[in-house]
């Protein structure tokens, strides 16, 4: 009875008319140990299908996440820098040093700082004094010009 059914299914199978369910019936029948001797031929075929279905892909696939640089972030960074600049610009720019209440104290402080400036200024002018020496040097060099003048006069005469 069962065998009859299997044979019918096989015929349908070979004509490509079986449904997936019917094929499953055939597969289970032929992979079992009780296959009718005259149908043994089909056994390796279904065994092969079964074996092949178990084969797996084991290799790793290197999935690289491409980091696409987003130029929008540049504008965000620029805005952040600008905001920081404005914030610190206003807070640091208005640095208040305070004033003196007492005029005498203010005068003392002022003259002290002026004294310091003049002291340093004098230091500066003292070093500038060396430039005078240089001037002297150039003045003596001026005499060389005189000599040249006379020699040129002499040579002019010779040329004539």
């Amino acid at each position: 009875m069962v065998l009859n059914n299997i044979e019918k299914l096989l015929e349908k199978y070979e004509n490509g008319e079986t449904s997936l369910k019917e094929e499953q019936v055939l597969k289970t029948y032929f992979t079992s140990d009780t296959v009718a001797p005259h149908l043994e031929v089909y056994k390796p075929m279904f065994a092969y299908f079964l074996v092949n279905k178990q084969e797996q892909f084991t290799k790793d696939v290197p999935l690289k996440t491409k980091t696409i640089f987003n130029y929008k972030w540049i504008s965000v960074a620029a805005v952040a820098v600008l905001a920081l600049g404005i914030y610190f610009g206003t807070t640091i720019g208005s640095n208040d040093l305070g004033t003196f209440e007492d005029p005498e104290l203010a005068f003392n402080e002022f003259s002290k700082s002026m004294e310091m400036i003049s002291k340093n200024f004098n230091k500066g002018t003292a070093t500038v004094g060396y430039l005078n020496e240089v001037n002297k040097g150039t003045a003596t060099l001026g005499y060389l010009n005189e000599i040249e003048n006379t020699t040129s006069i002499i040579f002019k005469k010779v040329n004539h």
Partner: peptide, 8 residues
């Protein structure tokens, strides 16, 4: 069977 599977 292996042999016949190879045949398939």
């Amino acid at each position: 069977l292996n042999d016949s599977v190879n045949w398939v």
